[in-house]
Amino acid sequence: MTLTIEPEAELVRRAARRDGAAVAALLAGLRPGLVRYCRARLGRIGGAYTTADDVAQEICLAVLRALPGYQDQGRPFSAFVYAIAAHKVADAHRAAMRAATVTADDAPPEHPDADPGPEQRAVATDLARRLSVLLDRLPEMQREIVLLRVAVGLSADEVGTIVGMTAAAVRMAQSRALARLRTLAGDTFGEVAA
């Protein structure tokens, strides 16, 4: 699998020329991040990530279609991809909001640590769920930055291009977001401990 090691710029160039192997490798590299992004943004709709994953798939196709137009823009490729992604997710979000009310499952369990279960997995899932609740309490921009930085794994510079900030502003905002999350988390931990 030498494909994954290939520099992205070259992959993108080849994929834009409809090189089948390059398209496959590019999608393979993009998809996990896109799936995490969509899942983080859309959550479990009807208890499953199916909708989010479908949207991720749709974004992959949209990226492929738009690929020939990318060359001229001179932006980082991730910015190009996640601009498309944000747009598609917003569409899907509106559609989902219209179709169904958000599940109450997102609320944190009342006694998160009361029933740790035999598996670490339960704890991890619980932690993940609690974090997504905390994220909902962040200002939208901070949430998006944390999402792109952690869920997708983009650099501060890339995120800056996507959200229209300097990298320095992104670093300030993300520190602020972390501080706020720590405060919020501290509150919940405190409640649990008390």
């Binding site: 998809r31 996990p32 995490r36 899942r39 983080a40 993940a128 952690v150 988390a185």
Partner: peptide, 22 residues
């Protein structure tokens, strides 16, 4: 780092079964 642990668990949870045949 409790918050980092939450973030890591969250990222992991989001990536669950990403490699499944789409």
């Amino acid at each position: 780092d409790d918050l980092a642990a939450m973030l890591a668990a969250w990222r992991d949870d989001l990536g669950e079964a990403v490699d499944d045949d789409p």
